[in-house]
């Protein structure tokens, strides 16, 4: 068509996806006591006590997590570039939506992490219930912002399915898997109604399954993305 596609930096940007997952898991998850979170029925005194004792660790974790939050958007942008080649139209609305979904997700992560950081900023000066409030608020935001990530998942899925190549750049099954993940995220709507059990923020469905299916999608899509870039360069 109109000559070779300039794929410089694409691989670097794509690496940002797995990098984000790893850093976020360690800093937000482990240091921030979010993997798994405190169950919603945990007494406020327990959550507050933990924050007061570990505020330095939480601060470090959230600062690094916030620093790396844009990595998700960068990764999403690289995927949107690949999507542009899949459907051979950079300006297609699907490509734009895939980009926006990634950008919105970054914003949701940034805002939610800032709440956990606030809870750790001066925990000795805050009453127990306020620390619990910040912890709850952060979780409600990060879980209920699922829909912005679903926009990215649906846009990428639908876009990848539109590949007219004999062998698609991104496997069709992975496109369908992403659509399914986006669909499954809707279970987060149940989370505010439960203080314990499978649908609570720490429950088997709303925490373990939801994170697991997403954490499988990111690295696998990245691997397929690398292969796709190689093929785009040869086309």
């Amino acid at each position: 068509m109109e000559g070779k596609v300039d794929t410089r930096y694409w691989r670097f940007c794509l690496w940002m996806g797995p990098t984000f997952v790893l850093v976020f898991f360690l800093c937000w998850g482990v240091l921030g006591h979010n993997f798994p979170p405190f169950p919603p029925d945990t007494p406020a005194s327990e959550v507050a006590g933990w924050f007061r004792e570990n505020h330095n660790g939480v601060k470090l974790g959230m600062v690094i997590a916030m620093t790396f939050a844009p990595a998700y958007g960068v990764w999403g942008y690289a995927l949107a570039k690949i999507l542009g080649q899949v459907i051979r139209d950079e300006h297609n609305i699907i490509v734009q939506l895939a980009r926006l979904g990634a950008a919105w997700t970054t914003m949701a992560i940034l805002i939610a992490t800032s709440f956990w950081l606030t809870a750790a900023f001066r925990p000795d000066a805050l009453p127990d219930w306020m620390i619990q409030l910040l912890y709850d608020m952060a979780w409600l935001l990060i879980d209920l912002a699922y829909a912005v990530t679903s926009v990215q998942l649906f846009a990428l899925g639908i876009g990848f399915l539109a590949d007219k190549r004999e062998v698609p750049l991104i496997p069709k099954w992975l496109a369908w898997y992403g659509i399914w993940v986006g669909f499954m995220f809707a279970a987060e709507c149940l989370m505010p109604y439960f203080m314990n059990g499978a649908f609570a923020r720490n429950g088997i469905l709303n925490f373990w399954i939801e994170f697991l299916i997403w954490m499988v999608w990111v690295p696998y899509l990245t691997i397929c993305g690398f292969k796709a870039i190689g093929r785009i360069e040869q086309e």
């Binding site: 369908w176 898997y177 399914w180 499978a198 088997i204 469905l205 399954i209 299916i213």
Partner: peptide
Amino acid sequence: GDSGVWVFIIADMCAFALFFVL
């Protein structure tokens, strides 16, 4: 049908299998 659709269907059925366990 499309083989990718089956991925969606199987994944979905597995989610329901988890519901049955619960």
